[in-house]
Nucleic acid binder design. Structure first.
Lengths: 150, 150
DNA sequence: TATTGTTATACTCTATAACTATA
DNA sequence: TATAGTTATAGAGTATAACAATA
């Protein structure tokens, strides 16, 4: 269990992380903002899935997911087909163009990180990745947001 | 120097971090969104400063800083006074009410982290803090965004 | 002329609520 | 009735560009 000063410093780093996110966003293709990129990457990694599953992986509301998906469908990167087992659902699948876009995205971001983190060791990159994954699961597993103390 | 797959995994964690940020935002007082909280925290930590200095610490455009500051001034948490040495500049200073708000914020976020990270060791928290700080400096020091490869 | 800060405008991401279609 | 997904609306955060005041 850490102390208050440690938590405050961590919060500060959380806040400052926004600058990293924005810098990452600047290397993305103009018609593929971060939200779209996240959808494409998850579909590539986990394979075809329903909207609800995608929303869960993105950890955002399904209404948000629906907007991202609509944007991507317009560009021909994914297809929405009806689920024969449940006509309310729609199955999402990457098109060949979508797969090409995933490759493009991977090259953009990988090259960018390789430049920025050129003096990081393999182990440091792995550590950061591991700790951020753990952070996420610590937030996932906890009970929902407690009341605000005004 | 890490490999492509490692970078891709790191990018995935960057993307997923949004959920943590949003969860943090939910414990903030309703009239003090994350942007305002960041301004108050930085003023408390670094003392009185000019707009330009604050924008640099926030790593956002000064126009954005100006909006955040206006929001906070409206609530009486900081004062903007003219800089005698340069009448174009304005010096920002926390009011007593602002200081009280900083304390409130600190309690909110600290309590939240203490719950979510209850099974983290002191050292793990410190490691994540250190790596995120290093990440930020790696991005700060690098040359500006290279061209987009469409 | 250059710099400090503000404002207008536009874009991305997000959530809530109302709605349609199906289970 | 309940669930899957869409759409309308609203709010937060951001950047660019035009502007005012001062250096």
């Amino acid at each position: 269990m850490a102390e208050q000063a440690q938590y405050e410093e961590l919060v500060r780093q959380f806040s400052a992380f926004g600058a990293v996110k924005r810098e990452m966003g600047r290397v993305l293709p103009t018609d593929c903002p971060a939200g779209s990129a996240a959808v494409l990457t998850l579909l590539n990694r986990h394979g075809d899935m329903r909207m609800s599953k995608l929303a869960e992986l993105l950890a955002v509301d399904m209404s948000v997911t629906s907007r991202h998906v609509a944007h991507i469908v317009e560009r021909g990167w994914i297809e929405r087909s009806a689920d024969p087992a449940d006509k309310r659902s729609r199955i999402l699948r990457l098109t060949p163009e979508g797969l090409a876009q995933v490759d493009r995205l991977s090259r953009c971001t990988t090259q960018m990180l390789a430049e920025r983190l050129s003096d990081w060791t393999d182990d440091e990159v792995a550590q950061l990745t591991r700790l951020m994954a753990r952070l996420r699961s610590s937030f996932d597993e906890s009970p929902r947001t407690p009341a605000i103390t005004q």
